[in-house]
Simulated assay, not measured.
Amino acid sequence: MSSGGGGSGAPMAEINVTPLVDVMLVLLIIFMITAPLMAHKIQIKLPEATLNVKPEETGRPITLAIKEDGEVFWNDEPISQQMLESQLALEAQKQPQPRIDIRADRTTKYRIVQNVVKTAKSVGIAKVGFVATNEH
């Protein structure tokens, strides 16, 4: 029983390098094309995230829930637009400022959410975030 290699009974000691050369040439071409695309012409210094602030130090965030019809809730209590503005102005004076989390219905018009964010920013709230569910 011969295992190949010319019928002498010895195992074949040659390696076929043609597929290896083909793969290496394809990789070389891919790197030659993509390398210039990865070089950024404008160098900027990106901010670094600091995660050493503990959530209990910043206090409890204020949750603003916005329903589809535009009704706004301050920590699950209904609130009018005028009261919302005065409450946000009051919270903006606190040190440290609480974070505002906005939860809106999926079908709420963006204009309604934008008005609430504009109100928060106009009275001086620095941290406004949006609450969403993870996509599966």
Rank of each mutant, 00 (worst) to 15 (best):
P36L: 00
V128W: 11
V53N: 12
M24W: 04
V123W: 05
G9D: 09
E85W: 09
N75D: 15
G59W: 07
E71R: 04
G124Y: 11
N134H: 07
T63Q: 06
A126N: 14
A65I: 11
P47K: 08
I42L: 14
V21T: 12
A104S: 15
I15F: 13
V131T: 10
V117M: 07
A49W: 01
K109Q: 10
I112K: 04
V128S: 07
H40E: 08
G70F: 03
I29E: 06
L84H: 03
D105W: 02
P55T: 02
K41A: 09
T107D: 11
L27D: 10
A65V: 09
R60F: 05
L37W: 09
S8A: 05
N16F: 02
F130K: 10
A13S: 08
V116P: 02
G9M: 02
G9Q: 05
V128I: 15
I100K: 00
E14F: 03
T18M: 15
I112Y: 00
K67T: 08
A10I: 02
Q87C: 04
I29S: 13
L90F: 15
Q95A: 01
T133A: 08
A35H: 15
G6R: 05
E135F: 07
K94Q: 04
L37Y: 14
Q43R: 12
I44F: 08
E91K: 13
N52P: 00
A92E: 06
S122Q: 07
T50D: 13
P55H: 02
